[in-house]
Design a protein around this nucleic acid. Structure first.
Lengths: 209, 209
DNA sequence: GTCGGAACTTACTCGAAGTAAGTTACTCGG
DNA sequence: CCGAGTAACTTACTTCGAGTAAGTTCCGAC
């Protein structure tokens, strides 16, 4: 049906930055609706009212376009969570606030999240490294929080901190996927509280090797 | 190059079960080497020394073949971990033994694991439900262990148990991926101990709502 | 031997990623 | 106002891989 945005006739040239943004927004929407595999470059081009080679000129490849979507969406998610964490009065509530912000954001932007779920698609070549880098910002945030939570009397073991940060990242991602596939999932609040209860004690009693 | 298995000339007919096994084994190998996207059905067919439609007749689609690989590999992994868990003398060591078995298996079968990493690819249609079902056996095992670990004086909240089981599943999967992408990852033993330390306390002090 | 079904193949269609080569519109110096 | 230069854009392909239609060959049972 190729509805552009309700304005078909006055489709003039636009400068590159504007067109790039337009394409990116359409791509986020369509990838979110139909998934990576279910979306063709022609679909995206048609939605913007433009031809496919233009999309290729600006984004290089389907992976490139998808990566751009992921990067932007994850950036927003990270900002939201980081804001919540930094606004918390102490370490304990920071952990909880971070979890809560994460699950709430994903509830409120289901389309964004369904793009991010597909992130794992890009396991081939340099795209894999790119998605790892994007996720790494989250892992860093978590690692910083973990350090804040650790008992101050013994120095942190970097391996342990990485292990814990990766664990928390993996746990929250799987929980998010699980919630979307469960008919009546527990509320963000309940999930965040349960995670907090599960982890809080352990973070204080970590033994060094 | 189409190397079958070092025996090209005597390629006779075989009964269905044998051929299916042969195809499945080749598929595991090739998917493991090149990933889902990087593998074509012609590749698999050629490796067995057979034509593509035969593969389709036996496995229906590329997703079907891939799913068959995942199912078998996850089954083995589950057996290994379940054995370790059941052999443990008590709840605390069962948790640790399960983690350890998990990471050791993946160290010893890197090719199997690289197939399982791609599991997330199948996010479309009925394949998504199928992969969820396969993973569900793991979640169940974890959920049972969590119940064993819970303090007996208050009844378990099913939501909480699901949340925890999903978390642990997600954490171990992300850790496994992370370990494969890290030059010198911590040993399975260290990872298992850290996870155990992180979770053990929290599992005992879970509050009901 | 021949008949029936199971194992297997050749030779396609179709859809989507990616590209080569060209065309149209805007813009800026004269 | 006008022509060149360039950025925005298109048409018309190629290529590759998933999936399929329509057979053909082998083998065992009667």
């Amino acid at each position: 049906m190729t509805s552009t945005t309700a304005t078909d006739p006055p489709k003039r040239r636009r400068d590159r930055a504007a067109r790039e943004r337009e394409i990116l927004e359409a791509a986020e929407r369509i990838f979110g609706d139909r998934g990576y595999q279910g979306t063709s470059m022609d679909d995206v081009a048609a939605a913007v009212g433009v031809s496919k080679p233009l999309v290729y000129q600006y984004y290089g490849s389907k992976d490139g376009l998808f990566l751009a979507c992921i990067t932007r969406l994850r950036g927003r998610l990270l900002d939201t969570v980081a804001d919540a964490v930094l606004a918390a009065p102490n370490a304990e509530s920071a952990l909880y606030a971070g979890f809560l912000a994460w699950f709430r954001f994903l509830d409120e932007h289901p389309q964004a999240w369904s793009v991010l779920i597909d992130e794992n698609l890009l396991n081939a070549g340099p795209a894999a490294e790119a998605t790892d880098e994007i996720r790494a910002a989250f892992i860093d945030l978590i690692a910083r929080m973990v350090r804040m939570n650790l008992p101050p009397d013994h120095p942190a073991d970097d391996d342990q901190i990485q292990i814990i940060a990766q664990s928390i990242s993996g746990a929250t991602e799987r929980l998010a996927i699980w919630r979307t596939r469960t008919p009546t999932p527990p509320t963000p609040d309940k999930v965040a509280r349960t995670l907090q209860d599960l982890l809080w004690q352990g973070l204080h009693t970590l033994k060094n090797p």
